[in-house]
């Protein structure tokens, strides 16, 4: 599995170029929060050769946004929604309904490491 570091500005161009070269199947968009930076991963597949390639975009926590790839890969729809809800990554270029899985408004994105879950969301039963 090949991992490619891609700049955010070059992302759209890389993905559409790859699509024309046969990497036409988007497997998954996911992200990993490394505290000092967030890596967003685009896993793209060439179905004919059955090879995967991972595009890695590194984002700074202060500057979390990405251009949408929905116009290139329609399957990015739900992944981008999930990304924007779980990691607080703003998707520019299309209207992404923010609430998707958790539907909690006004909290930290849950899959970021800064999300303190064991103290904030303890129920009253646990405190006793």
């Amino acid at each position: 599995m090949v991992k490619l570091k891609v700049d955010r500005d070059a992302l759209l161009g890389t993905i559409s170029k790859m699509k024309s070269e046969g990497w036409e199947f988007l497997v998954k968009i996911t992200a990993v929060d490394y505290k000092d930076h967030v890596d967003v991963l685009y896993i793209i597949r060439d179905l004919a050769k059955s090879k995967d390639e991972i595009l890695e975009v590194t984002l700074q926590p202060t500057d979390l946004w990405l251009p949408t790839i929905f116009n290139i890969h329609q399957s990015a729809d739900w992944y981008e929604r999930e990304l924007s809800e779980m990691f607080g990554v703003e998707i520019k270029g299309r209207l992404v309904p923010r609430l998707f899985l958790e539907k909690w408004d006004g909290i930290d994105p849950p899959l970021r490491k800064s999300f303190v879950w064991d103290s904030t969301y303890r129920t009253s039963d646990d405190k006793q």
Binding site: E24, L47, H73
Partner: peptide
């Protein structure tokens, strides 16, 4: 087929 690839099923 084309749509299946596009939607990534």
């Amino acid at each position: 087929k084309e749509k299946a690839i596009e939607l990534g099923v």
